[in-house]
Design a protein around this nucleic acid. Structure first.
Lengths: 138, 138
DNA sequence: CTTGATGCTCTAGTGACTAGAGGTCCTACT
DNA sequence: AGTAGGACCTCTAGTCACTAGAGCATCAAG
C-alpha cells in the first residue's frame, strides 16, 4: 500500500495533480485508511504510470480517458487505441513542421542585429511586419 | 477609422480577442463613436498586427508586453528585443527536439499493431510501460 | 509526547482565449 | 421614415491541465 506521496515520488506526478486526476474521474478513487488518507495498491500505481507516460507523449486527458476503459481500467480495444496513437503522431509531426518554420523565421530575425545594416532595431520592425517574413508561417 | 470587426478581418485576430487584449492592457483603448463603439486608427491596426505576428511566432503576451513600450507603443530597445527573440528561438528549438523524440516513440508504438506479433494490443502496453521506450523522451 | 513532514478539503488563480446571455446600435432597403 | 438583420456593447462563466494557498488533521520518528 502506497500513500499519495509515495505514489507521487514513484511516478513523477505531483500530489495535487494526482488528486486532480481522481477528481475528474481519470484515476479511480482509492481506499482510505483510518485517518482518511488515500492508500493505493499496485493497480493505482500502474494506472497512474500509464497516464503519466501518455501525458509525456502529448496525449490530452480526454484521449487518455478514451484509451482507458469507461470503468477506469485499461481498455483493450486495439483498433481504437491505434487510431488515437496515429492521430497523435500526425499531430506531433504537424507541430514539428510549424515550429521549424518559426525557427527559420526567428533565426532570420535574430541575425538582423548582427549585420549592422544601418543601425538597430530591425527585430521589432520584422516582428511588426509579416510581409517581411521569408517563409509563410501560420 | 476602423470598427472592431474591420480590424478583426484585416489582422485575423478575432473580435473577442481584440477586446481581451484591450482589457489586459496590451492594446491601448481606442476612442468611441457616439454610440459607444470602438473606432481604431492606423496606430491600432499596426499595434494589433505586431501582436498577431509575435503571437504566431510563439511569443507569450508577457513577452509581447516587454517588447512594446510601457505606454503601449512599440519600444525601441534593440538589445532587449534581440534577447527575447533569441530566447524564443532557443525555446522553439528545444520544443522541436522534444517533439522529434515523441514522434519516434509514437511511430514505434504505431507499428506494433502491424507486426502481428502474437496479437494486439501492444499499443496500450507500450503506453503503460515507459521502460519499453526506445528513446528517453521527457 | 512533541515536532515536523505529510495529508486532507476547499477556494481561487494561471494563460489565452471562447461561448453565451441580453441588450444597443448601425446600415441598407423599402 | 420605418424596419430587418447584422454588428456591436458589457458581463459572466467556461475551457485545459494544472498550481498555489489557507487552515486544519494525521502520521512517523526521536
Amino acid at each position: 500500500m502506497f500513500s499519495i506521496g509515495q505514489l507521487s515520488k514513484a511516478t513523477g506526478v505531483k500530489v495535487p495533480t494526482i488528486r486532480y486526476y481522481e477528481e475528474i474521474g481519470l484515476l479511480p478513487a482509492p481506499g482510505r485508511n483510518a485517518g482518511n488518507q488515500r492508500r493505493y495498491g499496485q493497480g493505482g500505481m500502474d494506472t497512474l504510470g500509464f497516464i503519466k507516460h501518455a501525458r509525456d507523449l502529448g496525449f490530452s486527458l480526454e484521449d487518455i480517458k478514451s484509451l482507458m476503459g469507461l470503468d477506469g481500467h485499461l481498455g483493450d480495444d486495439c483498433a481504437a487505441a491505434d487510431k488515437i496513437a496515429r492521430s497523435q503522431l500526425a499531430n506531433v509531426r504537424d507541430r514539428i513542421r510549424k515550429l521549424e518554420q518559426l525557427a527559420t523565421e526567428l533565426e532570420r530575425i535574430s541575425h538582423l542585429c548582427d549585420d549592422g545594416n544601418g543601425g538597430c532595431c530591425q527585430v521589432l520592425t520584422a516582428l511588426g511586419d509579416h510581409r517581411l517574413c521569408a517563409g509563410d508561417h501560420s
